[in-house]
């Protein structure tokens, strides 16, 4: 076991280094646009645009999560709203009980609800990990359209569960009156909150970068390309895919917790299957299996939602056209158009 660890640490270290080739420059530029955009908007007193940037960052984070399963693991999950929503409800329910000074979930011997972001984030990540483990265990025996349908079915179960739980608003959702706190930071300040989300996005991206450059990442690629050939090399493909699926759910869940805090509200719309589709659209739009693809996808998606949505309520018609164009003519997505083909394509 120790030897396999040294392999992880040293053997593939070269590929985990961030390289400033064309792909690196484009990735860096995307992040810079977000930071500069948010800062300029803040200085100009345009809080709305700062929040718009935060929205891009959070949705990108959800996409980074899904991309790990869909793009790198080849698992087309149509139920990632479950993790997004569960993360959101953790933030909402924590704040609800902290506001009421009642124990979490109303169960007497549990600690009181919390309005601190760190424990809420960790709870969201842990619960989403457990949920993804359960769903993944049961769904990974299937593939193709069955996998899509099973993940969708699980997500719908959670959706209806949330609708029928009146304590936390049911169909009306649950407001978060005071944004959750992080140490001494003023999280109500839109720019502070933006940088919190941005920091987590960068953290998630560099984590995925390291993960995919490791032995695990290579094995995950093998499991996607040819699980049988991987098995004849003595590695069972399923636990590798399950691990990636769990991490994927955790990242998307963290994004959900941030999204609830951004909006000051968590509702069943976060669990809706439309939401699963939206996250998937972002990944496809940005570039499936490209680390920074979801960042590009989320920026484009939110920008279209804002500008086209301001012009017509049928803006999704145009989203559909763009998606069609990407699928037909630019298989690498927007990121593929900007950064060229990936290393091994």
């Amino acid at each position: 076991m120790t030897q396999s660890h040294t392999l992880t640490a040293t053997g593939l270290a070269r590929t985990t280094r961030f390289r400033l080739d064309r792909e690196g420059w484009i990735s860096l530029s995307l992040l810079l646009i977000l930071v500069v955009g948010a800062t300029v908007a803040y200085l100009a007193g345009e809080r709305f645009f700062v929040n718009l940037a935060s929205r891009m960052v959070i949705i990108a984070l959800a996409g980074v999560g899904l991309n790990l399963a869909l793009g790198f693991g080849g698992m087309v999950s149509f139920g990632h709203a479950a993790y997004f929503g569960l993360g959101g409800y953790v933030a909402g329910i924590g704040a609800f009980h902290a506001f009421d000074m009642t124990p979490a979930l109303g169960i007497p011997f549990l600690p009181n609800g919390s309005d601190q972001m760190i424990p809420l984030w960790l709870t969201a990540i842990a619960l989403c990990g457990l949920l993804a483990y359960g769903i993944g265990r049961l769904s990974l025996g299937t593939s193709g359209v069955y996998f899509i349908m099973i993940t969708l079915a699980f997500a719908q179960m959670i959706y209806y569960f949330a609708i029928s739980w009146p304590t936390y608003g049911g169909e009306d959702g649950l407001p978060i009156y005071i944004r959750n706190q992080l140490w001494g930071l003023n999280t109500n300040n839109s720019l502070v909150f933006f940088f919190l989300c941005f920091g987590l996005l960068v953290l998630a991206l560099s984590f995925c970068h390291r993960l995919l450059g490791s032995r695990f990442g290579a094995a995950l690629t093998m499991a996607r390309l040819n699980p049988i050939r991987l098995a004849t090399s003595g590695v069972e493909p399923r636990p590798i895919k399950l691990m990636a699926f769990v991490i994927s759910g955790m990242i998307t869940g963290l994004a959900g917790a941030l999204f609830a805090d951004l909006n000051g509200f968590v509702g069943t719309s976060m669990l809706d299957w439309h939401r699963s589709g939206e996250i998937m659209v972002i990944v496809i739009l940005g570039g499936v299996g490209r680390l920074y693809g979801p960042v590009a996808g989320a920026m484009l998606f939110v920008a279209m939602e804002f500008w086209l949505g301001g012009l017509t309520e049928y803006w999704q018609f145009f989203l559909g056209l763009v998606l069609l164009a990407v699928v037909l003519f630019a298989r690498g997505g927007v990121f593929g158009l900007l950064a060229g083909r990936s290393r091994h394509e």
Binding site: L7, T15, M222, R229, H344
Partner: peptide, 16 residues
């Protein structure tokens, strides 16, 4: 595994 580098092909399934 054509999408991976030579080194990754060798190391991903290596056993001591």
């Amino acid at each position: 595994f054509t999408n991976l580098s030579v080194r990754e092909n060798l190391l991903a399934t290596a056993r001591p």
